[in-house]
Design a protein around this nucleic acid. Structure first.
Length: 876
DNA sequence: TCTTTCACGC
DNA sequence: GACGTACGTGAAAGAG
């Protein structure tokens, strides 16, 4: 069977442009509309399998419709240049795919589509039209259907005759009558005043056409409506004419010209590559692999069987290749380095056994440039080698320059700056199950190129830091911090597997009981962990009211279940089951899996170049989200112990560091004074927001005030706040407003930081950490609001991160200076956890708050609270 | 293998 | 008024 797909090119390109953020390729061309259009096109081809395909475009500004009505499409916003630039690219793409495209002077895309669809139906084709424009529904016929783009760019709704009738209560032929009556603001078609969709549908349901409506005017009830119809008869009829698609336009392409055969041509892959469409390249099975290898000339890499200082210089780029995601336990594939003396390679075994190599590594005076220096340092520590003289880390530098670049591969970072450094690791080694490690010359070449690329990249990154005034941030904060973190990770935290196993057994028994209870209440067994099955039980079998839906079904999230508490006793049991199940799977079983058998410790990995705010993150395992709020979960902390007998776990946390930082940055008199007076900040906020005295603050008021402070710190919206404390969005908005009125300095800061973000495109923290906010200019309300809240929030959260990082470095130095045995183990955003010998407890109680509180001088005092005990649980 | 949903911390 | 709402990590289910 022959199938013709007709696409309204203008409409789809427009939709794509507004649906997607402004993407750039590496040449600075905007590509979002082309990208979205291509996605849609590929999806349509895959779904419809057309034998014939044509994309129609509007030809120019004026059309025959302007002769009838010169205001047609008047008042439209001019096409943004970012979008018009992309049309030539769309044409190029269609040509490369061998797809017929067509425009016709004096006509619009819909006339072309209307004409061809009629011809095709007569010739026995099935026709599918793709557009976002509802006017096309008038073309729907027995063999013509219209796919309307719903949202995004690839989601569509297909309309045939019966669906049109179902949705609008009229036949497709009457769509133009509907439009004539109700008008269309976007095309500047007037219609009849006071007649909208509902009235028009009613009238047409009764009389069928506009003409017939006017023949039966006397039957129409409603004085005003009748009057409007009478006074605007000409306008209504003219609107109908304007809205009617010309199905007899002088189209010069024939159906046979639209024949389509899918083929992936070199032209197409080249175009995708130019546009930077990596994911689409992969989709069509032409990943970036082959041709990058051909382009790169080979480099001379000397393979050494022993280390010589003649190969290194005052500055040397070192690669210790590791592919395992966990550098504590992963293998080192090989070493390479590059300096003024050349490029060198040593296999792992040889290098690790060579004392001269070890001596160079440990030499503080021999400066090394690395990528992910902490990982290399830790991996070498496990092999008994000390790495010193780390002068530069390309990963950290890239992270400071632009947080969004931190995840990039060395080759990607280099290529962006015009340095050829061979293939990306994922391309060279393959990824996922396909990963394999080549040996011999290819590996040597790859590692050699990486070292060479790193050597060339470092000064460029350093220059960029210089331009951003971020040199201090790297050299005096992140790099020294990496050394501290390396020590913490390598040290690890002693963890009692016995304690965890005992908790696991206990949880297992409780879960069994709860499980049985739930099955009994539900009347059958099912998988409680499956939101799908659980949803069906709760909302279908038990008929509980479904409050929220997710994309795939009913939401069964905790906040939803919380609201159903009174409805059925099963809810409480499910919440218990969830809570305990989480403890068992993530914490008991998860942690047991990562205890090192040799030393009985857990060694986490901190990611120092990931978060957009400057905080650290912790993986493998995540030790920054060990339960604390609920007692059952908090007990997990009993498994974390000091490594030595007679030692204690010592914890020190900043009290309200974010709000203190806010008081400082915003320089708000009221907020500063609250901290100087050592007030309970949530009570103080409650007093200000609710306008009451200290004594009048109720626990509920304090709880709400706390949520407001929480919202300020995390940059949540009025909606988020309303959800948190279960009030209306309007009330939440009023809380925020009251807050800002009470703290005018904060209000001023919020206004100014958003303004600054718009001017600069980024915001900064106390120590000049940067976060770019391209969405601050977005036309999409959501994206823009989000960027604005981020602008307000990032300096607060990021500066707090700066402060604790400073404190960690200073703490490390202080411990060294005072020859203490106490060790820093963990950081949890505003909290430092140490292990401390009993005899050092007194001095630590002095030193730790001293260092943390004076890590940096703010306009408000910083306050630190300490606690200690035999386990992490007891340090409260 | 990838995506979605849920839950833990700050 | 739109629309979906702080940042992270990890487990489990289910679709492909």
């Amino acid at each position: 069977m022959k199938k013709l797909v007709l696409i309204d090119g203008n409409n789809v390109v427009y939709r794509a442009f507004f649906a997607l953020p402004l993407l750039n390729n590496n040449q600075g061309m905007y590509t979002n509309a082309v990208y979205g259009f291509t996605m849609m096109l590929m999806k349509v081809i895959a779904d419809e399998q057309p034998t014939h395909l044509l994309v129609a475009f509007d030809a120019g500004k004026t059309t025959f419709r302007h002769e009838t009505y010169k205001e047609y499409k008047g008042g439209r916003q001019k096409t943004p240049p970012e979008l018009s630039q992309q049309f030539p690219l769309v044409f190029e793409l269609l040509d490369a795919m061998g797809i017929q495209r067509y425009e016709l002077d004096n006509y619009e895309a819909d006339d072309i589509v209307g004409t061809l669809s009629r011809q095709a139906q007569n010739a026995g084709f099935e026709v599918e039209i793709v557009t976002g424009d509802k006017d096309y529904l008038q073309l729907v016929d027995d063999h013509i259907s219209v796919s309307l783009i719903k949202k995004g760019i690839t989601e569509t709704d297909s309309y045939n005759r019966s669906r049109v009738h179902e949705r609008y209560g009229i036949d497709p032929e009457a769509v133009v009558d509907l439009k004539g009556l109700m008008g269309d603001a976007s095309d500047n078609i007037p219609g009849v005043p006071g007649v909208g969709e509902k009235t028009a549908m009613k009238l047409l349901g009764q009389f069928g056409t506009i003409e017939s409506v006017y023949e039966h005017l006397e039957q129409i009830s409603g004085k005003k409506l009748k009057e409007n119809l009478e006074n605007n008869q000409q306008q209504a009829l003219m609107s109908k004419v304007i809205a009617t698609i010309d199905r007899e336009s002088p189209v010069e392409v024939g159906l046979e010209d639209c024949a389509f055969h899918q083929a992936i041509t070199p032209k197409l892959t080249a175009l995708f590559r130019d546009l930077g469409f990596q994911s689409l390249l992969e989709k069509i099975g032409a990943g970036a692999t082959e041709d990058t290898t051909e382009k790169v000339a080979s480099v001379t890499v000397m393979q050494l069987d022993h280390f010589s200082t003649d190969t290194v210089d005052t500055s040397t780029a070192l690669i210790a290749e590791m592919l395992d995601s966990n550098y504590h336990y992963g293998a080192i594939i090989g070493f390479s380095w590059a300096s003024n003396k050349g490029i060198f390679y040593m296999d792992t075994e040889t290098a690790l056994a060579d004392p001269a190599f070890a001596e160079w590594l440990v030499d503080d005076q021999k400066e090394k440039i690395l990528m992910d220096s902490k990982a290399v340092e830790v991996a070498l520590k496990w092999r008994g080698l000390d790495l010193r003289g780390i002068r530069f880390d390309a990963r950290l530098a890239a992270y400071l320059i632009d947080t969004t670049e931190a995840g990039m591969d060395l080759a990607q970072l280099a290529r962006k700056r015009g340095i050829d450094c061979g293939q990306a690791d994922d391309d060279f080694y393959g990824k996922g199950v396909k990963r394999k490690i080549p040996s011999g010359e290819p590996l040597i070449q790859h590692l050699g190129r990486k070292a060479q690329g790193l050597l060339a990249l470092a000064p460029i990154l350093e220059k960029e830091l210089e331009d951003n005034q971020q040199r201090d941030l790297l050299f005096h904060l992140e790099l020294p911090l990496a050394r501290v973190l390396a020590k913490m990770e390598y040290t690890g935290v002693k963890t009692s597997a016995g304690t965890l196993r005992a908790m696991g057994g206990e949880l297992e028994r409780t879960l069994k009981i709860i499980e049985q209870d739930i099955y009994q209440m539900a009347g059958l067994s099912f998988n409680i962990n499956s939101p799908k099955q659980l949803g069906e039980i709760l909302f279908e079998k038990l008929q509980l009211p479904a409050i929220k839906k997710t994309k795939t079904g009913y939401s069964t999230a905790a906040d939803v279940l919380e609201k159903l508490r009174g409805h059925h006793e099963i809810i409480d049991r499910i919440l218990d089951f969830r809570q305990l199940g989480k403890l068992k799977s993530t914490y008991v079983e998860g942690l047991l899996k990562v205890i090192n058998e040799k030393d009985g410790k857990i060694h986490t990995c901190y990611n120092q170049a990931l978060t957009q705010t400057g905080r650290l993150s912790s993986v493998d395992p995540n030790l920054q989200n060990i339960p604390i709020r609920l007692e059952e979960g908090r007990k997990i902390r009993q498994a974390f112990l000091p490594a030595e007998p007679g030692w204690q776990i010592f914890s020190a946390d900043y009290s309200q560091i974010e709000l203190r930082v806010l008081a400082h940055i915003a320089d708000d008199t009221n907020l500063k004074q609250a901290f100087i007076d050592e007030m309970d900040i949530h009570t103080k906020t409650a007093m200000d927001v609710f306008g009451v005295s200290k004594e009048e603050v109720t626990p509920l008021m304090r709880r709400h005030a706390k949520a407001v402070n929480f919202g300020i710190i995390y940059g949540i919206s009025d909606y988020g706040l309303s959800q948190n404390i279960g009030i209306s969005r309007k009330e939440a908005g009023q809380f925020i407003e009251k807050y800002l009125m009470s703290y005018p300095g904060v209000q001023k800061y919020m206004d100014e930081i958003v303004k600054k973000a718009r001017e600069d495109g980024y915001v900064t923290t106390l120590l000049n950490r940067r976060r770019y906010l391209p969405d601050i200019h977005s036309r999409n309300f959501n994206q823009r609001s989000f960027a604005e809240r981020t602008a307000m929030n990032t300096p607060i959260q990021g500066s707090a991160a700066d402060v604790i990082k400073l404190a960690m470095i200073q703490m490390d130095e202080r411990l060294k200076a005072e020859h203490l045995k106490s060790r820093l183990l963990l950081q949890v955003h505003d909290e430092l956890i140490f292990e401390v010998p009993d005899e050092e407890l007194d001095v630590m109680k002095q030193i730790v708050p001293d260092v943390m509180e004076h890590a940096i001088a703010l306009h408000v005092p910083l306050e630190v609270q300490c606690a200690y005990g035999p386990t992490w649980y007891d340090a409260k």
